[in-house]
Design a protein around this nucleic acid. Structure first.
Lengths: 117, 117
DNA sequence: ATACCGGGCTGGAGTAGCTCAAGGTCAAGA
DNA sequence: TCTTGACCTTGAGCTACTCCAGCCCGGTAT
């Protein structure tokens, strides 16, 4: 699979994929005889996971650490699990923030309604 | 109220407040005889709102637009309401993303559990 | 009186995480 | 053959902070 397809499947942009690869976030990307990147289904799964981790605010450095562990194989699964558990905590925190902000907006909008009447 | 107190009350950092003011996001900040910023309770409420809007991903440009409307007074309330309604939509989208990512992590963690047994 | 804080000020440099643009290669279709 | 389109690399630009140097000022300790 070429980079454009990898982009449309993973959700990441073409430029972002190249950038991530350069930063060591995407292990084992092959190249064809023409020098172009070739992505395996496993690459795609990995990119998709990165997409979601980024989308929900995992910092670059953590992603790098996670990718380094992934590249080392199965004996790092415990460590990877810990990272994902930490990220789950972050998700919960973000959800609280969203809820809190939604409340604030609701109140603010009610006040605006008053003015408009 | 001085800037450090404004920071601890709003949630924004001191540097961020100064930056926001320079970018036109904080109307009507007074100065004392010593040349230092003085924040009114209304300033604090506004900064707190900005804090939550930023925290939930409102882009700078939208905040600038919102601040410009706020500075113009009550006749812009409809426009401000529209901005907050749009932002509410964004919050809903983010919430969906968080939920989706949480699902993905849960599945991933289950797979890791398999390996670890 | 003076030395030393802590907190404020400005201007400017540095950072993260992309994002875009310039300039080049190459394979396939009209 | 010519052109188009997808890919390549390198490097600049952007957003939204974040930090730092160097200065001022008011209050306390010596």
């Amino acid at each position: 699979m070429r980079i454009s397809e990898a982009a449309s499947r993973s959700g990441l942009k073409v430029d972002t994929i190249r950038y991530y690869e350069a930063e060591g976030l995407v292990p084992n990307v092959g190249r064809g005889a023409d020098g172009q990147r070739r992505f395996s289904p496993e690459n795609i799964d990995w990119l998709t996971l990165l997409y979601w981790l980024r989308e929900t605010g995992m910092p670059m450095k953590v992603m790098q650490e996670f990718a380094a562990l992934y590249a080392q194989g199965e004996e790092t699964i415990q460590a990877r699990k810990d990272i994902l558990l930490d990220h789950s905590d972050l998700l919960a925190k973000r959800r609280d923030d969203l809820d809190r902000c939604a409340d604030i907006l609701t109140r603010k909008l009610e006040i605006y309604e008053e003015y408009l009447r």
